[in-house]
Measured scan of single mutants.
Amino acid sequence: MTEYKLVVVGAGGVGKSALTIQLIQNHFVDEYDPTIEDSYRKQVVIDGETCLLDILDTAGQEEYSAMRDQYMRTGEGFLCVFAINNTKSFEDIHHYREQIKRVKDSEDVPMVLVGNKCDLPSRTVDTKQAQDLARSYGIPFIETSAKTRQGVDDAFYTLVREIRKHKEKMSKDGKKKKKKSKTKCVIM
């Protein structure tokens, strides 16, 4: 069974824990209790493949930012979460993405942009803004509501699919490099 290491990042209060708990335990946590770091595991079937999701729910508070490099190193894919009623959390996505790329030393890291709290009427981040940002990053965008469960499975499952595509691409690139290195030079 394939294991996928997913990391949920975003500013404090955007609903990272609520999304994760909704996926794992099928219930909505409405009281806000700032996370330092929590880890969850769940076995699911995605596109006919049974897999184990190892999900790291991270601290959004700035005082825990020193811990970010460590979990970013171990993560295979990242859910970059903002709240649709919090423009600052949307603007912060850029910083999370840049930090992930720096730590992973790669421009090509599996990510999904997630606009959470889409059940709320007080939207300050337009869907088109988020779609445009995701398009500019070359990553999928999904709106979710941890409260109603809308888009929750889709967000995590899409990230797994992005990781699969990335692994497939990397193995193809690896095979191309191996083929090239088999060419021999004969000096007579």
Rank of each mutant, 00 (worst) to 15 (best):
T2P: 12
E3F: 04
E3Q: 08
Y4N: 11
K5W: 01
V9N: 02
V9G: 03
G12A: 10
V14T: 12
A18H: 02
L23P: 00
L23H: 14
N26E: 11
N26K: 13
D30R: 09
E31Q: 07
Y32Q: 02
D33I: 02
T35F: 00
T35P: 00
I36R: 01
E37W: 01
E37F: 03
Y40T: 00
R41E: 01
K42T: 11
Q43A: 10
G48H: 08
T50Q: 15
L52H: 09
L52M: 15
L53C: 06
L53V: 11
D57R: 00
D57W: 00
G60P: 03
E62F: 08
E62Q: 10
E63W: 02
S65C: 05
A66K: 03
T74Q: 13
E76I: 12
G77K: 12
F78R: 01
A83G: 11
A83S: 15
I84R: 09
I84H: 13
N86M: 03
K88W: 11
Y96T: 07
E98H: 03
Q99G: 03
I100Y: 13
V103D: 06
V103L: 14
E107F: 08
M111G: 01
M111H: 02
M111F: 11
V112A: 03
C118R: 10
P121Q: 09
P121D: 13
P121W: 08
S122D: 12
R123P: 08
T124Y: 07
A130E: 10
A130N: 06
Q131C: 06
A134I: 11
R135H: 07
S136K: 09
S136Q: 14
Y137A: 05
I142Y: 05
E143G: 09
R149N: 15
G151K: 09
D154P: 05
A155K: 11
Y157C: 10
L159S: 01
E162G: 08
I163Y: 01
K167A: 05
K167H: 07
E168C: 04
K169I: 06
K169D: 08
M170K: 05
M170R: 12
K172W: 07
D173A: 11
K175R: 09
K175T: 06
K176C: 08
S181N: 11
T183R: 14
K184V: 13
I187C: 13
